[in-house]
Each structure stands twice: as C-alpha cells, then as structure tokens.
Amino acid sequence: MSRIDELFAQTRGEGRGALIGYLPAGYPTVAESKELFAATVDAGADLVEVGFPYSDPVMDGPTIQAAADTALRNGFRLKDLFDVVESVANRGGRAVVMTYWNPVFHYGVDAFARDLAAAGGLGLITPDLTPDEGSEWITASDAHGLDRIFLVAPSSSDERIALTTAAASGFVYATAVMGVTGARETVGSAAQGLVQRTRVHTDLPVGVGLGVRSGDQAAEVSAFADGVIVGSALVTKASEGTDAVAALTKELAEGVRRPRA
C-alpha cells in the first residue's frame, strides 16, 4: 500500500474528500515556494502537487502560465524541484510532482523516478503523457515505488477510461471541464458524470480538478469525489504571501469536511 493509498483509505474512512493543493515549485522563488508549500501543509492540505515550471504549458491557463514564467525568470532549475519536494516531505507533508513530459524524458525517465523517490516524492501527475506512450514511465514508477496519476477528461470514451485507470495508481485525476487550468465560478456539471463513469472501471480514488476556488465548491465536489484538487486559486493567493495561502487552504480543508449531503 502506497502512502497515497493510505491517505485515501483514511479520508474515505472519515467520510470526506482529500484536499489536494497545487503550487509551482520556484514561485516566486525557490525559497519562498518552500514556505508556501509549508503553509499549505500546515493549514490542512492532505497532499500537495509540486508543479514543474515549464516553457510550454499547453494545458494551463493564464494564472499558472504567468507563475511558471516568473519562476523561470527567477532562475528555477530542474534540480530545485527535488529540493522543494524534499522540503514538503520534511515538513510532514505528502508530495507528488505535476509535470509536462519533456523535462522528465530529457532528464531520463528512470533517473527522474529514482531522484523523485529519493527526495520523498510519492508519484507523478503527467498532463501530456497518457498510458499510450507511458511504458517507460510505468516501468520506472514500478521500479522506484512511485504512483502514476493519469488524467481522464469529459471527452474520454469508456474504452479510454478503462485503459487509463488500468495503468494508473494512487488516484485518478478527473478534469472537471474541457479546457485549461483556472479558477471558475462553477465547477463543470460534467465532473460528477465523469467521476461516475470512472468508478465503473476502477476502485482507485478519483480526484477532481480544474476550477475549484472556494470552500463551498470544495464541499460540492467532495460530495461526489475522493479528492478535491485546487490549483490556480492557490497560485493567485501565493502572490499575496503565505498568510493568504494558509487562509484559503483552511477554508478548503473546512469545505471537504462538511457533511456530505
């Protein structure tokens, strides 16, 4: 049982969704990003996604694009990623990395898995790597005991959901809407249907992301999903500092704990 499996066993036992918070490593600087991650861990994020700032983030909206640009301009390097992951682990948090594929491919898939595991990372979310091209990563993640979190989308056919969930471990990342990352007024109505379609094919926990920004939305999503993923809204708060990030995290952590209707 991986530490992510243990986490979801615990939150399922408590009858609530897990809170999963995303921030880019190195935003606005490496040192400040460690403080921001520490704030989210301390304020109740069950799992954090450490984002890799990448030059061509095709699945990200303006908020995360701008944050990645800032991190890169401030000198973020790949080795800093492992450093940030280690800081989360040392704080008592659980960290997975979310990254576009090329930096992993370029580093060497097995070497990346080895170094991520050594830093205390628990797995990898791969927005532009599907199981179709994932054989090297599947081998490496098995070798180094990492979870591989693949994505499903409202446009995924049942056949593709079956293929994706069969290759995934830890949890399945369900994108709530068709589109890029970014806080939205409403979480897509497609999300609940997608979670239901995904559960037909797997017992893995299903986390829902893309658009969640408030405690109320977190409660709404937590009612039908195993995990609530918050990205852009936290990144926006990160530009205001650790107090703002901690305050939003607390609100979200309260949201996922509201009694399910």
């Binding site: 532009d128 989308a153 994108t175």
Partner: peptide, 22 residues
Amino acid sequence: ARGHFGDYGGRFLPEALMGALD
C-alpha cells in the same frame, strides 16, 4: 498504427484531446 516514424512521433498531448485525435 499509433503514429511512430521509427523512434519519433506518437501522441504526447492531454487526454482531453485523445478523443478528437482518434
């Protein structure tokens, strides 16, 4: 059949686009 020219090609895009590519 999956778009590989030797070692190159393939599909490295978000799952949300796989249906449209299919």
